[in-house]
Design a protein around this nucleic acid. Sequence first.
DNA 1: TGCCTGACCACAG
DNA 2: ACTGTGGCCAGGC
Length: 107
Amino acid sequence: MEEISFFDKVYEVAKQIPYGRVTSYGAIAKYLGAARSARMVGWAMNNSHTKDVPAHRVVNRAGILTGKNHFDGSNMMQQLLENEGISVKDNQVVDFQKYFWDPVVEL
DNA sequence: TGCCTGACCACAG
DNA sequence: ACTGTGGCCAGGC
């Protein structure tokens, strides 16, 4: 029985984010059937450190690293993205649309 | 126990 | 076309 909460589903999707790709909170929320629950996706990321979830690949709808403040360092999130070949400028992903990974389409 | 906050997005005015 | 507010679920005080 799938006693999986919306919370847990977020991790399942986030873990499936391919290398060198990024997605948005809303995209995950919408895939789960709750486009308005985007806030929960972000809140789930708070426990992402206890999971194997690449929270650094998850940004907001505008491609801005809104959650970078929750990482260890100040620009650690940016470092991780650049390490995957994703350019980040002023806390914003360059060519976000190009690297955007939509779970609704990919999954 | 109850109210408020929180890594956002969609809808309405 | 833009700005403002509501809403979703869960956790913290």
